[in-house]
Design a protein around this nucleic acid. Sequence first.
DNA 1: CGCTATCCTATCGTCTGGCGATATCGTCAA
DNA 2: TTGACGATATCGCCAGACGATAGGATAGCG
Lengths: 105, 105
Amino acid sequence: MSLPRDLFLGFVKLHILYHAGCEPVYGLWLIDELARHGYELSAGTLYPMLHSLEEGGLLVSEKRVVAGKMRKYYRLTDAGADALEQGRERATELLNEISEPAPTG
Amino acid sequence: MSLPRDLFLGFVKLHILYHAGCEPVYGLWLIDELARHGYELSAGTLYPMLHSLEEGGLLVSEKRVVAGKMRKYYRLTDAGADALEQGRERATELLNEISEPAPTG
DNA sequence: CGCTATCCTATCGTCTGGCGATATCGTCAA
DNA sequence: TTGACGATATCGCCAGACGATAGGATAGCG
């Protein structure tokens, strides 16, 4: 059985921030990359997500024409790097906690 | 600067599942416990969350009267344990990935 | 006994956001 | 010009996050 999606969306965003920190990324590439990690999102989910991340100051975009196609490349901002770092810490803390054996019952 | 909340809500739910797997938990205790981990959520956020988790079959509840007060205790179901396990894996994978040093720029 | 404080859960109204489906835009090929 | 293709943008609906507030049960006080 699959998990409710809302459990994962934060993870997805963190992934996006990370990739945008490695190199400029664009929509369809992200959809593909995330699918490789098991997160299947449609364009109707990803693009608004990107927009809100940009609006929130975590990403900045820049239009480029590649092979005749317009692409919007997103890069991580300082605030985005900060958010990613906080996400890292939170995720570490979460894993530390939930990885302790839970008594069944 | 604080992160957008939606980055964290999945983490919060995983925390809840974990705690519910350790021992039966109830609303206000969770609010307190989560606050200790830096997640401040109000009752209006937590209770509907609990309800939807139960509706989704990840938790089951049981009413108990403690010190004269009615409390609804939530425990993890098998499906919930499964979800938690998947969350663990995802979180591990996420951390593995985003912990690699990202080339600046 | 009634009053009030306390503890805990439930819900209302609003606004945000996830989603599939669809529209749109720019370029290349013929 | 038309069509195909790579990509982004948006519409419309429904779920859900949120603060605020209500509800309900009991204990303690007088």
